[in-house]
Structure formats: C-alpha cells, structure tokens
Computed example of a mutant assay.
Amino acid sequence: MSTEQAGRSIRCLVAKVGLDGHDRGAHVIARAFRDAGFEVIYSGLHKAPEEIVQAAVQEDVDVLGISILSGAHNTLVPKVMDGLEEYGAAEDTLVLVGGVIPEEDREGLADEGVSAIFGPGTSIEETIEFVRENAPER
C-alpha cells in the first residue's frame, strides 16, 4: 500500500498519555512518519485518555501511536481503546503502542485491540513499513 489512500496521506496521531514526560521517542517517530509522507499530529504531553480519543476522532486519523514509558500502559491504553470503541472508531484506527512494555503485558494489550507494540531498539523502517502495510483503507 502506498502512503496515499483515496487521495490522502495516511493520517497519524502520535500521542503521549498520562503523566509520562519522556517524549523524545514520540518526537523521533513523528518526524520519521512525516519524512515517510504521512500526515502527523502530535498530542503534546500529559494528555488524558479522553483527550487522545477526542483528538483521534476529530482528526479522523488512520493510525494512533501511543507512546508510554510510565508503566501505566495497562490502565491508560484500555481507557483509550474503550473511548475509541465508544465513538465507533476502534475498527477504523490502527493502534500502536511504543515504549517499554513487559512481555507479560503484551497479550493483554493485544486483546484490548492494540495492533502492535514497538519497544526500544525497533527500527524506524520497521515501524513505517508496518503502518504502510496495516493502515486501514478509507
């Protein structure tokens, strides 16, 4: 799949949820997505799950990348997924999580609807290719 879908670029929201203030990785991935031709929106720091959901729905994003390094992924990510479900956007949004996610927590996040988890050391190229191959067609 190319970066163009029905005449528009893949739209991505890179989001920082909760009190996690470590945003270097989010900035790196946002820049890499932009350089790959994606349309990128960055949430800024310290957003509540509801704010992330609102931004994803209002911006009609194809991809929601959640960057979380606080250890609160089992609490905050399900709240985001529930919000997307509430708005009927869960099936039309590819949800990715980036950060230090313990192996034992990955299956639970997948059960919540997270499509992929990218940890430290994942190449930017791998992440971009995953988005290109899996972003929903609109």
Score class of each variant (00 low, 15 high):
70 S>V: 06
76 L>D: 02
81 M>E: 00
66 I>P: 10
121 G>S: 08
69 L>M: 15
83 G>P: 04
95 V>Q: 01
125 E>M: 01
115 S>D: 07
107 E>A: 15
62 D>R: 02
108 G>I: 04
113 G>C: 07
84 L>M: 05
87 Y>S: 07
109 L>D: 03
69 L>Y: 10
63 V>H: 03
116 A>W: 04
105 D>E: 15
96 L>H: 12
61 V>Q: 11
54 Q>H: 12
98 G>Q: 05
126 E>F: 01
96 L>F: 08
121 G>N: 07
120 P>N: 13
75 T>E: 14
78 P>E: 06
67 S>A: 10
111 D>A: 15
90 A>P: 02
108 G>Q: 12
97 V>P: 08
113 G>L: 03
68 I>E: 12
94 L>T: 03
126 E>W: 04
105 D>G: 01
90 A>V: 04
78 P>M: 12
103 E>G: 00
60 D>Y: 04
113 G>I: 05
63 V>C: 00
64 L>R: 00
64 L>D: 05
80 V>Y: 10
63 V>D: 04
85 E>C: 14
94 L>S: 01
72 A>G: 13
124 I>D: 00
90 A>F: 03
72 A>V: 10
70 S>W: 10
74 N>Y: 07
127 T>L: 09
92 D>Y: 02
78 P>D: 06
93 T>P: 00
122 T>I: 06
121 G>Y: 09
85 E>Q: 14
105 D>L: 08
101 I>Q: 05
114 V>Y: 04
122 T>Y: 13
118 F>V: 05
92 D>R: 04
61 V>W: 01
74 N>H: 13
93 T>S: 04
68 I>T: 15
73 H>L: 06
102 P>Y: 09
67 S>D: 02
90 A>Q: 12
60 D>N: 14
126 E>V: 01
121 G>Q: 12
95 V>G: 03
96 L>Q: 12
99 G>Q: 02
64 L>E: 01
73 H>F: 05
62 D>P: 00
79 K>N: 07
115 S>M: 00
123 S>L: 03
79 K>D: 07
78 P>R: 10
